[in-house]
Structure formats: C-alpha cells, structure tokens
Design a protein around this nucleic acid. Structure first.
Length: 1044
RNA sequence: GGGCCUGUAGCUCAGGUGGUUAGAGCGCGGUCCUGAUAAGACCGAGGUCGUUGGUUCGAGUCCAUCCAGGCCCA
C-alpha cells in the first residue's frame, strides 16, 4: 500500500534518490531500446565546448531539449538523443595561446604545431566531467557514453566527404575576402577579437583629395578649359594607391563649383548638401547634377599602378554552376578608373564621393566584384608598401605623410585635417588593424539561396517571427560562406595543390587519400587527420606528365562547418550508416539553442543540408532568448556574473529550476535569472502539489485505500469530484495541446493553475470527506478522485519536472499495479475523457468561489470571523448555478441557509441601490459596479453579475455554536503542539467561566467528534501532555489534553 | 550604421482580431483562517501600460518618431 509521505521534503535528496533509481534500472536506455518499432523522434544536440564550466544558460538549453523528448517518449516515440562535443576552433586556440604565453602565429609555429595542437586537444575535455555531472543532475537524458566528437577522424572524414561533394558540384572556390588583419601578428582577426580592441578618439589624417576628370560621362557637360575634379574624402591616405573607382549616391544631388586655389581657377564636384561644410573659400555654383549623371566618368589615377610596378587585375563576371553568376579575378594591363554608384554612400561626413580601393575595405571589395572594377594591391601582409613608389618600403601608417605631401605638391590635395574616430587595434599587440583583401576559400551558398529561403519556410520556428525575421532576413542577404581559417586546430581543408602546375585536387576521404598517396599506405591507416600530420602527406600531381609533388593548402576549416556537418558526421555518413535518410535519422525532428545561433549553428546546419540534400536538416526549432543576470545583463565569463547551476540545484532541486526556466517567460524572450523566483516556484507549485500528495498518502494509508476498491465502471457523483475531474480532463486536453506545439511554458502555467485549484478548493472543501471514519462510498469516491488527479498530474508534469513526477508515480502507481511501467517516463501520456467534462458545473463552481470570496469580504468588514456560524446569506446571480453549488457556499462561509434571489427586483434591487448610492457618496460620485456596504442587519457585497447579502446578526444559539468551534479549534492546536497522531484518541480537561461549561455540555458531541475526545472533563489535569490557558471572547479558558 | 527582439505595479509576468472600471503571483502594511501546506482568505498601498505624435467615436492593443535595454552583423 502507499507509503505515507511527510509534508516536508528535501528536493535535492529526492533528486538523488530518483537519479539512482534511473541508473539502477537503466530507465533512459530502455526508453529507447524497449520500443524498436516505435516511430523515431530525432533530436540533434548542438555540441557545447567543454573547455569551460557549464553555467545556468547551458542548463536552459538542455532542459528545453529534454522536455520535448520526454514528452515525445510518453507519446510513444523512440527518441534518439546522441550527445556531442564541439572541439575545434579559434576560442580553443586563443585559450592555449594565453596559457603558453604565445602572442602570434609565428610564435605558435616556433613552439611547434604538433605540441600546440596536442595542448588544444587536451584542453577541450578539461571540463567534460563537470558537464556530464550537470547534465545528469538536471535530468537531461542524452547519450553521453557514445557522443560524436568533432575532432575524431571519422567526424573529420565526413567533413572531407562533404567538401569533396561541394567541390565536385562547383560550390567550393577560392576568392578574396576583406578581413581585419594585424600586420605585426600577420593574421586575420575574428570579429570577436576585433571587438576586443576598439579604441575611441583615435586620431587619423582626414584628407580631401582631387581626382581630375578626363572622360566625363555622356550625361555630363564639362568645360574642358578649366581643370575639373571630383572631391573625395578618406582617413587612410595609404589606401589611395589602391584606388580603382569613386562611388557616388545615384539619387543625391551634386554641385559643380568654381573657386580659386593658390591663385588658379579650378572646379570641384561634390554633394550639394556637403558644400558648406567642405569648401571654405568663396565659390560659385556652375551647375548641379544627380549622382546618376556622374556615373561612368573616367578620371586620372593618382598613382597609375602600371607606372609604379604594381599588378593590375580586374573582376569579371562569368556563368557559374546552376545558372548562377560567379566572379573571377583576371590579370589585365588596362587601367581605367571610373565613377560608379554605391548604395552605401553616406552624406553624414565626407564629400558624398567615396574613394574605392577593393584591395582594402570589405565594402570596396564587394563593390569591385559587383561593378567589375580593377583590383590593385600595393601593400604586403606585413603592412609595407610594395612597388616603386617614392614611399615604397614604408609601413602604411608612416607612408600617410609622404602621400599627403606628394599630393599637395601635385596640387591634388584640397584640404587636410585630423579626424578622431573609433578604430580597431590588435587586442594582442595594439597594432592598428588594416582591412585587407585576402585569399580565402568559400562555399558558394548563394548558388542555392532560393532553396535556402524556400526550405526555411517549411521549418517550424518557435517563436515563429524568427523564420521571416532574424533568420529569414539573414538568408535573404546571403553571401558566400568563407570557410577557411589560417589557423592550426581545426578540420584541415583537404585540398592539395601542385606547386609546379597549380593543379588542385580535393580529397573526399581516407581511402581516397591512400589511393592518391604513393607508398606509405600503412602509415595512413594510423594517420591523425589533424595538422601537422596531414600536412606531411605528399601526393603526386594528378595532371599527366607534370610530376610535381602536391602539398596540402595550409588552411583549416571554420569550426561552424564542423557543427553544421553533424547530421552526417555524427554517424560517419556515408562511410557508415548510409541509411540515415531512410530510417528517419535525417532530418532532425527537433533542435533547440539560444538565439545567438541564428547565424551560427542554425545557419551552418541549414546551409550544408540544403547544399547536400536540397532540404532542411531540422523540422522544428525552439530558439531561446538569452538568460540575463538579475540586472538584465548578459551572463558571461568576463563579467563574472555567471550563475553556477549547483548553487541553485543543491538548495532548490532540479525540478524547481526546470519549472522556473520553463514557465518564467516564453522561450524566445530574454529572461532575468533570479534564485528568489526559483524558490517561489518551488513553494508555490511543487510544494503545494507535494502537500496534496502527502495529504493523500497519509489518509489513504490510514484508511487502507486501494485503487482496486474502485469499481471499473465508477463514475463520480459528488459535485466536487465531478468538478475537479472535469477540470482535470480539460487540463489534459490543453497541456497535451501545448506540448504538442512545443510550448512547455503554457503547459507549465496551466498545470500551476490546476494545482492551485486542486489544493485550495478541491482538497480544502473535501477534507472532511477524508476524515469521516466510516468507509462509505462518498469517501471512496473522494479517494478515487484525488488518486486519479495525482496520477494524471504526475504524468502530465513528468516532462517538465521528471523527478517529483517519478516519485509520485512510483509510490501511487507502481506500488499497487505491478503491470504498470516502472517509470512515469515509460508510461503513456494521459488522454482526456470527454465524458467527464462538464462545462456547466465548472461555471457554477467558479460562481461558488466568487460568492465565497464576496461573503468572506462581507464577514471581514463586519468583523465576524468565519468560525462564527451565521444564519442566512441572500444571493443574486445565476440562479441555477447557485442552487447547484449552494452546499459548497454554505460550508465555505459557515452559514445555515442560502436564499437565492431569483430576480433583480425587490430586495435585490434595493440592496444594489443602497450599495451604489453609498459607494458613490464615499467615492467622489464614482461607482464601478463593485461595493461593500451595510444595509440594515445585512452586509452587502456587489460585483458585476453578482450580489451577496450576509445577515451578520449572531443569536445566542449561534454564539454558543461559534464558541464550540472556537474551543474545538483550540483543542486541535493542543493536539498538534503535543504532536499527537492524527488518529490518537484523547481526554480533554477544561476550566473557564459558565459560558464555557454550558457550551461544553450542549455541544459535547460536536467537540468530542472533532477532536477525537472520549471525554470532556471539567477541572485540571495533572499529567497533561498539552495544556494552555488562553484569552478568547473576553474569557480566560484553560484546556488540557492527554492520550488514552 | 543595418537587421531582429523587448519596454505594463517594487520584482517576475498575463493582457486573440482596438470597445465599458488594465489583471495574476511574489514582496509590503493590516486583519483573519488553519487535522495537508515552506500554505490559504479578506482589506489596503502601489500603474499618466518607455516618449511624443497620428489613425479612430474609442488605442496597453494599429501606424510613425524618438528614448532605453538586449542579441546578431557591420
């Protein structure tokens, strides 16, 4: 039979007990293995990096992953949840660099790539134990024994296979990329690193440069007799030798002005609205044009690359795969810089004419590709000017002064100033960063842009605005994915290049590599595919007759490529598990991560699956808002405001934390974390339920209740039973619906409401039915009802609060039903019984609650405590409902008789008018339909649709009855302080005035029955187990009790 | 600078398609109740629904602007 449960409970201890039970009985494994034929529900785990301690924000994502899978399991699915670890990438390298005190790529290479990578490899599992413990502790079921690991050879090999496929499809290419580059460290910086090194108020030269017009556009009329110039502005004079175009805003207005400069007459073109700010000397406006009129004008280069020994190349559009357009860089000897339209031209500062050098800025590079501009690179990777310029060999920033001087001497400098702005510096060495167009490998995602957008429209996003908003926007603005990194610790790019003939091959797997490598096959079997080992593999050039020795290109892959490859790489597809599409392992049914992954994992998964399979790799995704600290700031290691999960879990337990995370706000919203609110959740929701459960087990144990005693065809007759079972079945319907639509938040909130109703109305109103000593059918009905509620709630809540649900289920179900599944998580999710839903009764009960509340308010105002019985209450409202639930109202309000006022006339009307008038009188003439006033002997409470008039007169008989209840109440208190058992029988002694003696006599039956007193004895008691002298109703009364 | 999201009581949150008095829980002050409860009931204080405009007979709700915060990207 049921084990009686104390009302006090330690959640952390309960968690530990349940975890042990799951472990001993292998429950997680069995949730998958015992249902081989069930439909598959596939979770893809977004792999964390275990090189740091997990924080509360990691708990958030993990419990949202868990809750959906537990639900699906109970709905009859077989959930596959393979764990994973992300192990590559720049953050790992930076951590190790810091540890080793290295500060540049040169130093890493001097230290040795082999040793360096070994350190990286060790570091990524440093906190794996902590992660495993946390994962276990919060009840996240995921297969951590056989996780996928991005550094495993098998995982890398699938990555190679993917790249090879893209290569074969013409979707992999080498191109230029504008990157922030540190000329001292000779390396690109990630955006994260750039963000670390911004310095405000950095002074830079501000120069206004004149570009002489040589070939005005057809739309432009220029008087050739006066020298005419475009006026452009820049803060980086050193980029001017790289100039290949000027950009204007096609829609803006430009002015041609004439002025005197050093005694010479000249004409300048610049944006009309920037004339005032940029031209200090007197001028005449000769003409105005639109920006579009200027486009295609040719001008004289400041430094013709052909003259200064710098190569000229040019972007050219060509037809690419799948009807797409690709852009290639080709060598040329022609150089004809011209004016183009650019949509980024700003009128905030400058002249409205922007100097374009595709070799430097990323925007310039984009415009160069777009407009097929020339490309001139007069600076090397160490930041020195090349060619034979007079300032060649100087560091770019030092060349600024020479260039300005040179231009000034040639009469091409209109003005120069100092400009202060925010500029990025290398966070390691403080060198100013240069934006530099570097060679990089790209995946041509733009070739499948339409498919990416189309596939996205079929994904279920929660919240749904992400689909068209943040993610859709990102896809519509798709640019090719730059996947190469000039780094060490990552998946090596499997491209080998011949130094003789530049021939390249992409290798799609280890077997293929063996085929291409001559000799040393045995070694290749054991080869770690990482750098530097793979760099040593030399292939003979595949071009017939070349005979060159091909070497691998040095780059590794962006770590996002690894995580995006996981749908395939976690199974070592297609080398193993070639059937993942057929058996449902691809695509995933569900993924869940925080919103910062839109351009991270959500994208890399989507992009690779679309390129490889033409369809998305996930069907449903919950995108979580970020978790903030109590002041609303993002939690981060740097700020030191990360909440350690243990500090919560060890006090409140896992269920309270989970429940709080599910219900505090909807998943997409950012949330402030507060341990106080976790505690509130614990008390208000979980402990309330626990106490109902404790109440049930205590009384069920006393009465030896067994569910078998309930007939199979039992239907509740009692009004309270019918009501709560109706509420229960509505609850089942709603919670199931919410869970089905990936909404644990509203599921939890709905369950909270029910738990409140169950505890504070059903149990409170039904208590006496459980106390009655006879085992009549009504008592059995109450047990059957409460039992069903608790069992059903334990199942409904199991996905959210798996520990308490398990505890309740095991004690209530497994103990009495050996055929039932031995874990709530292996049980079926409840289904609603529509025949038990009675909307009318639910409405009537709601009215009973409202009338009770109004009656209590009237009592409170009249100063008559609930313990004092009263004679009558008159109520106007829904008459049918009132008659239906009048018993509940009478008991709740402790009143003898309820009179239903059928019509709103006569007394009802008179009560209402008086309340309205009195309320208006005391409330500046305002009456909002609510009021509480005394009307003769009645206190009358009015609310819209309901009126309650309470007779507050206390007759002597009623007063005696009230005193009897008071005395019984005091005796109960004594019983409790003396810690008597609920069923202990006692003898009660009393001393007090005549009134007490009289009531003890006249209400002896009542008092005895309520307090389980065998005798009520006047006088004192020597060996009392509990005794107290108290003042009440102006009397001094002494009561004493002892067990018999 | 661009995109997306958020802004309702001290705190955490509700407030379909615009419609009479903007709600809940916690917290606070008071009163009461208690054979389950770290509980419950009643009363009270506390909100110009971020700002300013607009549409409308009517806006927390729709539109625009601005302000503040967050994330992602420049």
């Amino acid at each position: 039979m049921f084990t009686p449960v104390p009302s006090r409970v330690s959640m952390p201890e309960l968690d530990a007990r349940i975890l042990q039970y799951w472990k001993d009985n292998d429950v997680f494994r069995r949730s998958e293995s015992e249902r081989p034929d069930a439909p598959l529900f596939m979770l893809y785990e977004g792999p964390p990096t275990a090189n740091g301690s997990p924080g509360i924000h990691h708990v958030l994502a993990r419990v949202f992953k868990d809750v959906i899978c537990r639900y699906r399991t109970m709905k009859g699915y077989r959930c596959l949840r393979k764990g994973g670890w992300d192990t590559h990438g720049l953050p790992v390298e930076l951590e190790i660099e810091k540890e080793l005190g290295l500060s540049s790529k040169r130093e890493i290479e001097e230290y040795g790539i082999e040793k360096f990578n070994q350190k990286c490899r060790e570091s990524v599992f440093r906190y794996v134990k902590e992660w495993e413990v946390m994962t276990d502790r919060i009840g996240f079921w995921v297969d951590m024994d056989d996780p996928y690991v991005t550094l495993h050879n098998d995982f890398i090999e699938t990555g190679w296979w993917i790249l090879k496929k893209l290569w074969d499809d013409g979707l992999l290419y080498e191109g230029l990329r504008g990157t922030p580059h540190c000329p001292r460290c000779e390396t690109s910086l990630s955006s994260h690193e750039v963000a670390l090194g911004y310095q405000e108020n950095t002074p830079d030269p501000s120069v206004f440069v004149k570009f002489r017009i040589t070939e005005p556009a057809a739309t432009l009329t220029i008087d050739g007799s006066v020298p005419t110039y475009f006026l452009a502005w820049t803060t980086t004079p050193w980029t001017l030798p790289g100039n290949t175009a000027l950009a204007v805003d096609a829609n803006a207005q430009y002015s041609l002005v004439e002025l005197e400069d050093d005694g010479n007459t000249e004409r300048l073109i610049l944006a009309s609205e920037l004339l005032e700010t940029n031209v200090e000397q007197p001028y005449n406006i000769v003409a105005t044009f639109s920006g579009a009129d200027l486009v295609d004008s040719g001008y004289e280069p400041l430094y013709h690359p052909g003259v200064y020994g710098t190569d000229i190349r040019r972007f050219e559009h060509k037809a690419g795969p799948g009807g797409s357009q690709i852009t290639e860089l080709v060598s040329t000897s022609d150089f004809a810089p011209r004016v183009v339209a650019g949509d980024f031209v700003s009128m905030e500062d400058g002249t409205g004419i922007v100097h374009i050098a595709p070799a430097f800025g990323d925007e310039d590079l984009g415009l160069g590709r777009d407009k097929e501009l020339a490309f001139v690179q007069p600076v090397n990777l160490t930041g020195l000017i090349t060619g034979n310029y007079s300032f060649a060999g100087k560091f770019v920033k030092d060349a600024d002064e020479d260039i300005m001087k040179d231009l000034s001497e040639r009469g091409l400098l209109h003005r120069r100033d100092i400009y202060r702005h925010t500029y990025p510096f290398c966070w390691r060495c403080d060198t100013p960063l240069l934006y530099y167009a570097k060679s990089s490998w790209y995946i041509r995602t733009t070739a499948q842009k339409d498919r990416l957008v189309e596939g996205n429209s079929s994904i279920n996003w929660y919240p749904d605005y992400i689909r068209e908003g943040r993610f859709g926007e990102w896809l519509r603005n798709n640019v090719d994915w730059a996947i190469s990194r000039e780094r060490y610790w990552g998946t090596p790019i499997p491209i080998w290049q011949c130094p003789v003939c530049s021939n390249r091959v992409c290798v799609g797997g280890v077997a293929e590599l063996k085929d291409l490598a001559n000799g040393s096959v045995a070694e290749l079997d054991e080869l770690d595919l990482h750098r530097p080992y793979v760099d040593d593999v030399v292939l003979s050039c595949t071009k017939s007759g070349c005979g060159g020795q091909m070497r691998r290109i040095p780059e590794v892959m962006d770590a996002w490529f690894d995580s995006g490859a996981m749908p395939f790489a976690q199974w070592h597809y297609p080398f193993d598990n070639s059937e993942i599409e057929a058996d449902g392992r691809f695509p995933a049914d569900y993924i869940c991560e925080a919103v910062d992954q839109t351009r991270g994992w959500f994208y890399s998964l989507h992009a690779l699956a679309t390129l490889l399979k033409g369809e998305p790799s996930y069907k449903n995704v919950i995108c979580l808002g970020l978790i903030l600290d109590s002041r609303g700031h993002k939690m981060s290691k740097h700020v030191g405001n990360v909440v350690q999960p243990d500090t919560i879990l060890d006090v409140q337990g896992a269920d309270a934390l989970r429940w709080y995370l599910f219900t505090a706000s909807h998943p997409g919203e950012p949330r402030r974390f507060s341990d106080k609110l976790v505690n509130e959740t614990l008390r208000r929701v979980l402990l309330t339920l626990w106490n109902v459960y404790s109440f049930f087990t205590n009384y069920a144990s006393i009465d030896q209740f067994h569910p078998d005693q309930v007939p199979a065809d039992w239907k509740p007759e009692n009004e309270l039973d019918r009501w709560i079972l109706s509420e229960l079945n509505v609850l089942v319907e709603q919670v199931d619906g919410y869970m089905d639509s990936y909404n644990p938040t509203d599921s939890g909130r709905r369950l909270q409401e029910f738990i409140d109703q169950l505890s504070n109305w059903y149990v409170r109103r039904s208590r006496r039915r459980f106390w009655k000593s006879e085992n009549d059918t009504d008592k059995l009905s109450a047990y059957a009802t409460l039992y069903r509620c608790l069992v059903t709630v334990s199942k409904l809540m199991a996905p959210l609060a798996p520990f308490m649900a398990e505890e309740i289920y095991r004690n209530l179900v497994c103990v009495v039903d050996s055929a039932a599944p031995d874990s709530v998580h292996l049980a079926s999710y409840p289904e609603p019984d529509a025949t038990l839903i009675d909307r009318d009764l639910m409405e009537a009960t709601r009215l009973a609650m409202q009338v009770s509340s109004m009656g209590r308010a009237a009592r409170s105002r009249a100063g008559v405590k609930v313990r004092q019985p009263l004679a009558e209450v008159r109520v106007w409202g829904h008459a049918g409902h009132l008659r239906q639930v009048q018993g509940q109202i009478l008991e709740e309000l402790n009143i003898k008789q309820l009179t239903v006022l059928d019509k709103f006339e006569g007394e009802a009307q008179a009560y209402f008018d008086t309340v309205r008038d009195a309320t208006q009188a005391s409330n500046k003439g305002e009456f909002d339909g609510r009021g509480l006033q005394q009307v003769d002997d009645y206190w009358v409470s009015v609310e819209p649709g309901c009126l309650v008039a309470l007779d507050t007169r206390v007759s002597p008989d009623l007063a005696d009855e009230g005193l009897a209840r008071e005395i019984a109440h005091r005796i109960q208190g004594l019983r409790r302080t003396a810690q008597f058992d609920l069923t202990d029988r006692i003898v009660t002694y009393y001393q007090g005035p005549d009134d007490v003696a009289r009531v003890m006599a006249t209400h002896a039956d009542y008092i005895s029955q309520e307090t389980l007193s065998e005798e009520l004895v006047a006088g004192s008691l020597g060996d009392a187990e509990g005794s107290e002298t108290q003042q009440f109703e102006g009397m001094e009364v002494t009561l004493a009790v002892k067990r018999v």
